[in-house]
Amino acid sequence: MSKSKESAVQTLEDQLRRLQEIASLLDAGDLPLEEQLRLYEEGITLANTCRDYLTSAELRIQNLAGGNVSSAT
């Protein structure tokens, strides 16, 4: 388990929350064009990041007793 993956794990929920926030902001409208563009780009990037993460991740199993649990899977 790499460090970067760990931090991605911790922020998936935050990223999804931010994505929802951006979608609501854009939906409400009334933003200056520059701000809207910036949010839009951030939102699309977030959506792609979350989707990639969700679809690429394999279930990981940490066995506190050591060894693997292949017999059970």
Binding site: M1, V9, L12, Y53, L54, A57, E58, L59, R60, I61, Q62, N63, L64, A65, V69, T73
Partner: peptide, 13 residues
């Protein structure tokens, strides 16, 4: 694994 494979399972036998 079927529902949310993005998670990590911490197994203590």
């Amino acid at each position: 694994r079927r529902r949310l494979p993005v998670v990590e399972i911490v197994f203590r036998p």
